[in-house]
Computed example of a mutant assay.
Amino acid sequence: MRVFATLDELVPLVGQHVSTSDWITVTQEQIDLFAEATGDHQWLHVDPVRAKAGPYGTTIAHGFLTLSLLPIMYATAIKVEQMRMGLNYGMNRVRFPAPVPVGSRLRCRIKLLACEEVADNGLQLTWDMNVEREGETKPVCIAEFVQRRYR
């Protein structure tokens, strides 16, 4: 984890790799709970028997489940000690170039793309979030994650 005393320490890092998250293992339980929460019960995600005969030989995580792991990945990679509050503001673009088979270990390489002043003594940070699967070269998720953090 990379720790910053203040938000202002991030400003000169625009264009640079800032940190890499811890590894997270995607379990079938997580996939099933995500299916329950979202109503997406596609067999490729929740039916191990049918998925075994499918294109990946096992169940795979929902793309949106992978996307929903970005906040925890960020939290294991970057900490700002003196900050009033933070909000996830949105996404500029998201792609899922490769599947995430159940049992995969994922981590995120985080690069700061932009940093802009916003109202109420805040910064809008745009991060390139590149999620990789252990042992694979192709990323499983690439997203521009936009946050607002307040001093």
Rank of each mutant, 00 (worst) to 15 (best):
residue 114 A to T: 09
residue 27 T to F: 08
residue 44 L to M: 12
residue 47 D to R: 04
residue 102 V to N: 05
residue 6 T to L: 09
residue 105 R to N: 07
residue 44 L to D: 01
residue 31 I to R: 02
residue 121 N to T: 15
residue 104 S to I: 09
residue 71 P to F: 04
residue 112 L to P: 03
residue 63 G to V: 01
residue 65 L to E: 00
residue 12 P to W: 02
residue 71 P to M: 02
residue 39 G to F: 06
residue 93 R to N: 13
residue 47 D to W: 01
residue 60 I to R: 00
residue 59 T to R: 03
residue 107 R to V: 14
residue 112 L to R: 01
residue 75 A to N: 11
residue 34 F to W: 04
residue 66 T to I: 05
residue 35 A to P: 06
residue 53 A to G: 07
residue 111 K to S: 13
residue 22 D to Y: 06
residue 60 I to L: 00
residue 106 L to I: 01
residue 83 M to S: 15
residue 4 F to R: 02
residue 83 M to H: 09
residue 125 L to A: 08
residue 103 G to M: 06
residue 65 L to K: 00
residue 74 Y to I: 10
residue 81 E to H: 13
residue 101 P to V: 05
residue 55 P to I: 13
residue 17 H to E: 12
residue 6 T to C: 09
residue 121 N to I: 11
residue 99 P to S: 05
residue 118 V to A: 06
residue 117 E to V: 14
residue 89 Y to W: 13
residue 118 V to H: 09
residue 78 I to V: 15
residue 83 M to C: 11
residue 13 L to F: 02
residue 87 L to Y: 15
residue 113 L to W: 11
residue 43 W to L: 06
residue 61 A to T: 01
residue 25 T to P: 08
residue 118 V to N: 08
residue 89 Y to V: 04
residue 25 T to D: 04
residue 127 W to Y: 06
residue 17 H to V: 11
residue 104 S to E: 05
residue 98 A to F: 09
residue 102 V to G: 01
residue 33 L to V: 13
residue 74 Y to S: 09
residue 120 D to K: 14
residue 77 A to Y: 00
residue 20 T to W: 00
residue 98 A to R: 04
residue 84 R to Q: 14
residue 107 R to M: 12
residue 114 A to V: 09
residue 31 I to W: 00
residue 81 E to P: 10
residue 119 A to H: 13
residue 63 G to W: 01
residue 87 L to G: 12
residue 111 K to L: 12
residue 61 A to M: 03
residue 11 V to L: 07
residue 73 M to T: 03
residue 10 L to V: 03
residue 28 Q to K: 07
residue 127 W to G: 10
residue 24 I to L: 07
residue 73 M to I: 06
residue 75 A to K: 10
residue 48 P to T: 02
residue 57 G to E: 00
residue 15 G to T: 02
residue 78 I to G: 06
residue 89 Y to M: 05
residue 29 E to H: 14
residue 78 I to W: 08
residue 31 I to K: 01
residue 83 M to F: 10
residue 38 T to I: 05
residue 71 P to R: 01
residue 76 T to K: 04
residue 7 L to M: 11
residue 71 P to A: 03
residue 95 R to P: 12
residue 76 T to N: 07
residue 127 W to M: 03
residue 53 A to C: 10
residue 79 K to R: 14
residue 83 M to G: 14
residue 9 E to Y: 09
residue 125 L to P: 04
residue 114 A to Y: 09
